[in-house]
Design a protein around this nucleic acid. Structure first.
Lengths: 117, 117
DNA sequence: TCCCTTGCTTACCTCAAGGTAGGTACCTCA
DNA sequence: TGAGGTACCTACCTTGAGGTAAGCAAGGGA
């Protein structure tokens, strides 16, 4: 338990997908890893303005549990940890791309600010 | 204000899309409307086991504000209100389909229960 | 000797999304 | 007369996701 997941059956595929990618920063983490391939913890933190360390770690752990991201620890001092997408993570990201496109077009349509990456 | 939206710029397209479809039941509402074309309020309620009337109305209003669903009121007694997808709602739903597929495959992979529709 | 670095952990707190429970108007049917 | 159905509204409360701030290990550099 305490794995941050819903209880009970899913109502449909979107329901199940949202259970994985629904955290406030998770989709952005995927995006960041997709764009850079491999990222250290601190790099991710700096790449996601506004996220706190606690929450970032929390969501990374949950994504790791769900086999979406891979965590590679280098036993050095100071410590070095690298995060990357797994096979499933890559597939998830691909599945998110049409949604990202729709979102980008929408923010353009309504004139919302959209920070370029 | 009080329109249930984030403040500040979006970090990317997914961020913007999640702001629209991120409510607990919103994606399921879209799914339901996509599958049935047009649904009355009570039909939606019965189709989304567990949702409360208050929250369902809330999310429908927000989706209406965002031009995702259309609300048609028939001035009869007893009242009759029909909800359907707008053009943008249809596009959003199409953008969600790869994600739905991924979610369905994932719940199959991990052996999660998935209620058939 | 002290501070700096990185990648965490822990305790505590806030706030808003969501849930619960009641009420409303209006008409129909029994 | 009154129960039932529809599509809401309103006040209140709970819960948990997320935010804040502090501490820690272990070595390197000044």
């Amino acid at each position: 338990m305490a794995s941050g997941h819903r209880t009970g059956p899913y109502l449909c595929g979107i329901d199940a997908a949202m259970d994985v990618v629904g955290g406030k920063w998770k989709a952005l983490i995927l995006w960041e890893l997709h764009n850079h391939g491999v990222r250290r913890f601190g790099e991710l933190r700096r790449g996601l303005p506004g996220v706190s360390e606690k929450v970032l770690i929390q969501q990374l752990r949950e994504l790791e549990e769900d086999d979406i991201v891979h965590r590679e620890v280098y036993r050095e001092v100071p410590p070095k940890v690298e995060y990357s997408l797994t096979e499933h993570g890559t597939a998830l990201n691909a599945a998110l791309e049409p949604l990202a496109l729709w979102g980008a077009r929408r923010s353009e349509r309504i004139g919302a600010e959209l920070i370029p990456h």
